[in-house]
Write a protein that binds this DNA or RNA. Sequence first.
RNA 1: GCGAAAGUGGCGGAAUUGGCAGACGCGCCGGACUUAGGAUCCGGUAGCCGAAAGGCUAUGGGGGUUCGAGUCCCCCCUUUCGCACCA
Length: 837
Amino acid sequence: MTDFRPQQLDKKWQQQWASSKTFEVDEDASRTKFYCLEMFAYPSGYAHVGHLRNYIIGDVMARAKWMRGFNVLHPFGWDAFGLPAENAAIKTGTHPETSTLENIAHMKGQLQRLGISYAWEREIATCLPEYYKFNQWIFLKMLERGLAYRKRSTVNWCPSCNTVLANEQVIDGACWRCGTIVVARDLEQWFFRITQYADELLEGLESLTGWPEKVVVMQRNWIGRSEGARVTFPVAGTDAAIEVFTTRIDTIYGATFVLLAPEHPIVDRFVKESADAAFRERVASFRALDREARRDGKEGFDTGRSALNPFTGEEVPIWIANFVLAEYGTGAIMAVPAHDQRDFEFARKYTLPIRVAVQAGNEAVTVETMTEASTNYGRLVDSGDYTGQEAPAVITRMIADAGKRGIGTGEVQYRLKDWGISRQRYWGTPIPVVHCEKDGVVPVPYTDLPVELPKIATFTGLGDSPLAQASEWVNVKCPACGGPAKRETDTMDTFVDSSWYFLRFCDPGNTERPFDPAAAAYWMPVDFYVGGVEHAILHLLYSRFFTRVLRDIGLVDFDEPFTRLLTQGMVLNNGAVMSKSKGNVVDPDDMLAKYGADALRLYVMFVAPPEKEIEWSDAGLEGSFRFLVRVWRLVDHWAETIGGEAIPECGDDCTDTERAVRRKAHETIRRVTTDIEDRMHLNTAVSSLMELVNELYSFSDGTARGAPTRVEAQVGVMERTQTIAVLREAIDALVLMISPFAPHTAEELWHMLGHAGGLAAAKWPSFDPKVARADQVVVPVQINGKLRARVKAPADASEDQLSEIALADATVRTYTTGKTIRKVVVGKGPLVSLVVQ
RNA sequence: GCGAAAGUGGCGGAAUUGGCAGACGCGCCGGACUUAGGAUCCGGUAGCCGAAAGGCUAUGGGGGUUCGAGUCCCCCCUUUCGCACCA
């Protein structure tokens, strides 16, 4: 008996994989590629077991694919720029670069101790100039194409992080990272024109059949396409006009007032022209409200002005309302209280007129009786020439008429905004432009890339942009005129880094371009992508955007970067997500010291399907460890006896028991293979392997103490070459199939079984349906819907034969004698169902 | 409020297309081996009735379709997640 010492095996095989470069790959046109990727990590310095789950999921997939003959790219890297390192520098004085590189080294060690099969020579870190040079390269390309542009705009400012946030980084009016309430601030910013791709990003979702529906829906909602019309309402008594966006132009005869966002530009004019100090104040106080406060209730006030409804010619009052969003549509709406719930509430609150313009449904809607807005489409009433016509056709007609009369036009609006990428931070990619007094914004020439981050010694956390302090770096000659100029001191949002890193892995050493298009053509798209659902919108949408931009630049020739997406569930402990502050983290190194990497890997895969959240359990881990010990003992027990035997041909000379073991082995191969490859049910794959082990134990009873086994107790049974061959086949298959989950143990066992060469070179076992098929099947018999008997039948029995056998059965006959058999159904399974009366 | 997913033993979870509900594991109970067992092996373990054979009841609740429903349809309850004035 050889002892199972997982810690030694971990070390031995990890060294072996590293020294023989087992997982390093090259393009090979003769082989089918498989690109398996887990979302790269922010190097916080320490990963608890909750962080490790998706790497294990990816590794199981990668290793299984490897054995199935694919050329597997399985790389890893670091999302290494970002706020936490800079915040730490402010606190401790440690330079972000120092702490980041240390953190990377530590976390890399953690992943290596888990035995994840990464092609480490492709490792990338976004904070290195070799990488971010190409953030800058892509930025310049986008600038050339008008996809990167500058605009002055109100942005979200986090007073705590001292930086601008993208819309997507604001959650419920608060900073996504620190939770501080965001305030508005006006700054000159860089934007990526993602809205130019809005329709394409939306349509592309249709093709993402390998993504969870949930994520597709979230993206669709985020893009938020809506078709409608822009209609012009002239302001009475002036040459000005207010444009509104509406999806319900069919209700325009019911528009009884116009609402403006407090920030709407025309409000400035009203304020300027107004002598009323109270009016000014109300405007100012409305503008000061954050999103949170505006949600509390619908508030508004009259501007004293009125607008002309271009369809009716009627004058309607103009109000300012807190719930009208300045950043959506035109920042102004026509209010139709009869047919919009929000307008209805507003009208009732301020007793503004309500007028019905559409009748939907059977019961007529009247202003007097309605208690809520009637929002369904229907037949128009009191709508001039359009009266009696029906939506949606009338909408098309009204938009066309508005166009002819020059009072409106069809328009599509998106909830999606252009992506603000400027960050007033140090630890990020410098934006490669200079500001020249004479030439304005001048791009840094490609030949001068990368614009390297200067070393800054002290981090105060005060001021707008830390880079502004590095005066030697800031002051440069203008690339265009040679005169004095200043570098841009903002850095890029780190989501830029992560929007194309998966492409860099295809060719991480390229110094001329982000990557070689030929390499990307071979490896991309990513076949299997694993990561947290928290990236369902931002990272995944930006990556889809970047992929299209790079396509238009000519670097890739596909649209969608990720074919199949798996969003793994979180790991909870004591009902909560693991976090240091909650004090419920489980340290992987503790677990490795106690049980080894394989038990940890196996447990995390077995306890629940990958996309579900799991609750950490020491007892569960212990159970997985026990299972590995069982496997170890089984193989150890038989290794010598069964060495060198060929795969059996189980003919008539095999016993029933032998045939049963072969059947179980092949059935397990079938189940594990489909569970891993088709269904991603890794938990049931493991349970199938456990069943096989149980079967082999009852066959061979491989106890630790060498107690007489059942098989050995039968005289002469071990002389049967068939027995040995059957065991050999089953045990080989077991070790092969367990290897993606428990690679260290499997490598050692494979070696013990006398196989030359590592498992990565071994072939996944193949399933033989002929072997898996039983000669006899047990057929359940239902009588009036209740299970009453089981009968034995030949596996290839026809439906008629099955009914015959069932009806002849003694138990069945106790239910049928003296009664009429009304119906006999033979179902899949097979199964016989009788209706008896 | 809108949208999505889910609800199965003491627990985590199985059940692939409508076909034997509870695989597999944890826990618990019993046995074997033992000076000992928290090691290992074997067996049992949804609930109720029964000595047993067996029967009855069970997949959040209520209806329906079907020879047959955890699975499909309708209504309701609960939980989780996402979105939340997007005109």
